[in-house]
């Protein structure tokens, strides 16, 4: 007994002392360096201000946060949320059927659909959005065809408006909606659907009572992954909205570039981060798994 207790206590002592060395894994170190430190810096400077030559002055102030309540900014926030929400909704309406069809296809068709979905990613999204501009423009493909057919006399305003921005967002972000939904549908136990039919559920009710609730985690995961970038993808609003439909992302980008107002940009970013955190929290609260979000 005595001989055995000696190494045990030694081991215990080592164990008590090692956590600092061993528990802090290299991954944690990387996470701290790459994420926590920059975030902390953003938070810090959001309470600072700038001097005449745009240097950050480390004097605590909440002026940047007070400025957030400027009616113009609030309306931009509202506009951003509206566009992001619409993009999200349309992504669901388009992405859900796509994911369903993909999940129920043969492996070959599945691969094909996946390729269609992912291939555009090999091209810069800016270039692809320029492509949309040439389709939607006044002399673009759609207007030319419609005019040729005599359906319209004046070209339709398809570009440089909210519609175009939402379209661009949906186009760029759709895969992020499809993939989580697809994963969840694949995992869905088919016998649950049979059970629902067996118990008298017609297809529509079966969908709303069983399929939809059981795949909602995929929709939620996809929505987070569409909604959050849609708030910040200023290049989409620049290209498709013609720069006259600003998102909060545009305002933030300008603070860091032309306006040299990093502290204010940081404060704006903190609000975006907060919105993100709230959404993710709501997601995990309702039973969503972080893995499904990080699956990308």
């Amino acid at each position: 007994m005595a001989s055995r207790s000696a190494p045990t206590s030694l081991r215990k002592r080592i164990r008590r002392k090692t956590p600092l060395l061993t528990m802090v894994s290299p991954v944690t170190v990387w996470m701290v360096i790459l994420i926590a430190v920059p975030l902390a810096y953003v938070l810090l400077i959001s309470f600072c201000s700038t001097d005449e030559s745009h240097h950050i002055v480390f004097a605590f102030s909440v002026q940047n946060y007070v400025k957030l309540f400027d009616p113009t900014l609030l309306s931009i926030y509202g506009n951003s949320l509206l566009i992001a929400g619409l993009s999200c909704l349309i992504s669901i309406l388009v992405g859900y059927p796509f994911a369903t069809i993909m999940a129920n296809s043969s492996p070959f068709k599945r691969t094909l659909m996946m390729a269609f979905l992912m291939l555009p990613f090999w091209t810069n999204s800016l270039i692809r959005l320029y492509g949309w501009r040439s389709i939607l423009g006044s002399n673009g493909f759609i207007n030319s065809v419609l005019q040729e057919l005599g359906l319209i006399t004046q070209p339709l305003e398809l570009l440089y408006n909210h519609f175009a921005v939402v379209l661009g967002m949906v186009y760029v972000l759709l895969p992020f909606m499809v993939l989580p939904i697809y994963t969840v549908i694949l995992k869905l136990d088919h016998s649950l659907l049979e059970a629902a039919s067996d118990l008298g559920a017609r297809p529509a009710r079966r969908f709303f009572k069983v399929t939809l609730p059981l795949t909602s985690s995929g929709i939620f995961a996809g929505s987070i992954m569409v909604f959050i970038p849609a708030l910040g993808y200023f290049f989409v609003s620049n290209l498709m909205g013609g720069g006259t439909t600003q998102l909060i992302g545009n305002v933030i980008a300008r603070q860091f570039k032309e306006a040299f107002n990093w502290p204010f940009g940081a404060a704006l970013s903190i609000i975006l981060i907060l919105i993100t955190l709230i959404l993710v929290r709501a997601y995990t609260k309702t039973g969503g798994k972080m893995d499904d979000l990080g699956a990308m």
Binding site: D189, S191, L192, E194, A195, A196, S197, D198, L199, G200, A201, R202, V210, P213, L214
Partner: peptide, 20 residues
Amino acid sequence: KEPFERNVNTVFQSYALFPH
């Protein structure tokens, strides 16, 4: 007749209870 139109019911091997 579709399954939902048949007057028979099934107990599944995996139970197939609706988890939600």
